[in-house]
Amino acid sequence: MIEAQALSKRYGAKTAVDAVSFTVQPGKVTGFLGPNGAGKSTTMRMIVGLDNPTGGRVTVNGSPYAQHRAPLREVGALLDAKAVHTKRSAYNHLRAMAATHGIPNSRVREVIELTGLGPVAKKRVGGFSLGMGQRLGIAAALLGDPHTVILDEPVNGLDPEGVQWVRHLAKGLAAEGRTVFLSSHLMSEMALTADHLIVIGRGRIIADAPIQTIIDGQGKVRVRVRADRPQDLLGSLAGEGVSSQVLEPELFEITGVEPRRIAEIALREGVLVYELTPLQVSLEDAYMELTQTEVEYHSHALPASGEAPAPAEGR
């Protein structure tokens, strides 16, 4: 169980994490989703005490990470695959980590087998591919057989077989009752692995709900409607648990109800409807929509030649 309360991290004038509060429950895989630079890694680093929060606090299994007597047995973390001395072998790296907790070498060999590092365990880590580095990071995270597992972008650089393996691993750990907290910037990956989703953008939590709710809520049918008396139509729809957004005086979007139902009500109310367009929302779109106002690095279409890009003026 991970509990963050008003957790903040500022670097000078820049706020990386802005008073986030969330709970990661045991027994399920919680996805931590957000675009690059949203504050995922910073949050995870604060959980294991690498970064000191500028505000708020975060506890793991009831106390701050650093106050656990056996931190590696409480939390296993893969924060970045390169947290290894390049001249040391994978086996010796794990042995040195294990020694701090009196974890026997038999467990070191176990996690090496578990992560499929056997053939390269005695080789220098410097020569590892990104995927092997990732596996070594996961091996280190599992050393202490921890109750809580934190994996930052674990599938980065893994081949398809590796990606699937991480998925099974995460689900298996959660099924054993452990807390699994897993970050990614890919919605599609999360849809396959996570049971619960925390979406972060620009340091703020945008959504925190079971994945099904997010898919349903965001993937709900959205219908673009042009009608001559929008207020009458929306008024009659109000009882159906829908939400709406008025774009122009006679143009609006209705979420949560099928187009046919809208047409039925319009017919009953005598409202003239001259457009009724269902808007399909994929999971990816839902995510983009959730985060589009919250991303730090936008990509823009290149300006046409001779045209200067619009200057970003203060509002």
């Binding site: 294991v48 690498l50 390169k82 701090t100």
Partner: peptide, 16 residues
């Protein structure tokens, strides 16, 4: 070299 290679993060996670 622990800082250069990133090993320091493994060290500090094991001994926070």
């Amino acid at each position: 070299s622990e800082w250069a290679t990133g090993m320091i993060r493994s060290t500090m996670v094991a001994v926070p």
